[in-house]
Write a protein that binds this DNA or RNA. Structure first.
Ligand SMILES: [Mn+2]
Ligand SMILES: [Mn+2]
Ligand SMILES: [Zn+2]
Ligand SMILES: [Zn+2]
Lengths: 136, 136
DNA sequence: TAAACTTTGCAATGGCATTGCACTCCTTAA
DNA sequence: TTAAGGAGTGCAATGCCATTGCAAAGTTTA
């Protein structure tokens, strides 16, 4: 386990501090998008701003992407190893209104819409709200 | 002009107060999604909470829909006359990163994605960021 | 006309993101 | 080996935005 986590950091040239290993592990285990508060609650003793800066470092190095799911708090989810957070890496995010969990639907294909003349897309955020499979 | 605005309110059984007429007129004229702060700035003398409650009333009566464009502030845009803010009324919203304006792309069709087994959609927010036609 | 209800203004409050500053820890070069 | 420099962390603000309590002002109704 630990090897995998440390490897992910090395792959992105991020130094493996204790906090970084913990946060990364959490994100891998939970397999969903987590907010700063959720992460803070999972550790209990870590400072929120440290986690914030950890996530910031992760973003800057394409380890996580941030998701605006309309819940009021930004969620963070693991990137794939080959992710460069471009339009091509974009995928649907699903917020379950029952369990409040947000998932990356990386296997659900999106057909790129053809925008009106003159509009050019750089980034997309496709958020779907509903009931997830475990809450059905 | 005024008739059209008052009619929109009557259609939704919302009493036409001064503030409501003004806000509705603004939203019609601007033809884009506006934030609370933007609306407040357009009047200069109106109270923010009054505008907030005006917009809340509008939402509850399907006169406007709220848009989370990731800018930090919620945007509000006019609904069509027959809108009931269901999944079918959903459309793409476009945030221009240059002029910071958010538009409703009601004529850009979206193909509904087929979600994984057990997932059911109730609401969608499809946000695309880029450069708009007037900023190109 | 007075009571009842609605709308408005003003002043909090609360949540979340972000940052300044000092302290600790680690790395590095003399 | 040790001191300096840099990176990471904790704590305590700050700022922005959404939302609400409360009292005043305006409207409607009996
Ligand atoms: Mn994702
Ligand atoms: Mn819209
Ligand atoms: Zn669920
Ligand atoms: Zn623009």
């Amino acid at each position: 386990m630990k090897d995998v986590i440390e490897n992910k950091l090395k792959l992105r040239s991020v130094k493996p501090t204790a906090m970084r290993l913990l946060v990364l592990q959490c994100l891998m285990e939970q397999n969903r998008a987590l907010s700063l508060n959720e992460l803070e609650a999972l550790f209990e003793n870590a400072d929120k701003s440290t986690i914030f800066r950890t996530l910031k470092t992760f973003q800057e190095n394409y380890l996580v992407h941030r998701i605006n799911d309309g819940s009021g708090a930004i969620k963070y989810a693991l990137c794939d190893d080959d992710c460069i957070c471009s339009l091509e890496d974009n995928h649907i995010h699903f917020l379950c209104t029952k369990c409040e969990k947000t998932y990356c639907l990386k296997d659900t294909p999106i057909t790129t819409p053809s925008l009106p003349n003159g509009f050019r897309a750089n980034f997309a955020n496709y958020l779907i709200e509903g009931i997830c499979s475990t809450c059905t």
